[in-house]
Design a binder for these strands. Structure first.
Lengths: 138, 138
DNA sequence: TCTTGACTTAGACATTGTCCAATGTAGGAT
DNA sequence: ATCCTACATTGGACAATGTCTAAGTCAAGA
């Protein structure tokens, strides 16, 4: 059993077949699927799984911090299981491919006190954009 | 006539009543309206303006660089007319209010060469999140 | 003032996400 | 092993946001 399933069990989750296949889909390295992509891949293993269950499960995984929601393009949200290592995203402006990247230093530190307007800062998310090698050479 | 309308005329735009009212709505300081909010405000001055025209005009303003599209929450995109001064956004996690802010230094510089994976970098957008003073004290 | 090609319109359609009542079931209790 | 029941799943309606098209309208140059 994967670590993720064990952590879910520890939290008192019922381990249904549906939740297992959603967890398996997200188990890959550095995947950034939309909810519908997760649904399509889950349905290959469990054809009767419903869209609502996929949305429910993804929402629950996000709310307990096991998965991060990423909106890089204002369209469908993507779900990133790499939640236990702080990182940012590098996106190709043409083909949309996404890579996890780690900036040096804390992006929060770049915002001077005079630019914080009394806010209690919590986090900074950075999206780097450019052309990936394939798109740049095409 | 506002500078924006003059620039649009210089580009050969037909200055229709619809485009004028959309430009007027975006003329305020530091507004971050959704397309539907722009439509509602435009319709106060020109009741028959259609949603399609507002979407068309906003899309055109974005493509010529007069307005910036901002997605802070994965829901409706917001339109930011402060396009001629580089800036980032500070968002209240509770009430959603948005402020324009200027980090010190270029966020792009934080991404080491070894984390660029051969991409040709173009820009970095940063979203700072936290609680605004009103929400923090409530 | 005419003409014409660009602009606008209403509404159908597409995509993404949420909600609900009915049904099913995981896992503890017996 | 089986039963219970609270929790989970389902299908489909609904909501929010955005796109597209065919037909009508109009800004601005001739």
């Amino acid at each position: 059993m994967s670590d993720l399933l064990q952590r879910l069990r520890d939290r008192g989750w019922r381990l249904t077949a549906q939740r297992r296949v959603v967890a398996e889909v997200l188990d890959g390295e550095h995947v950034h699927y939309t909810a519908d992509e997760v649904h399509a891949r889950a349905a290959e293993k469990l054809p009767e799984i419903s869209r609502a269950t996929v949305y429910n499960t993804l929402g629950e995984l996000v709310s307990i911090g096991e998965v991060i929601e990423v909106s890089t393009d204002g369209r469908a949200k993507r779900y990133d299981p790499n939640a236990h290592h702080s990182h940012q995203h590098l996106v190709c402006s043409r083909c949309g491919v996404i890579r996890d990247v780690r900036p040096s230093g804390d992006p929060l530190a770049l915002l001077p006190e005079g630019e914080r307007y009394g806010f209690t800062l919590d986090e900074a998310t950075v999206t780097y954009r450019g052309l990936c090698p394939s798109c740049a050479s095409a």
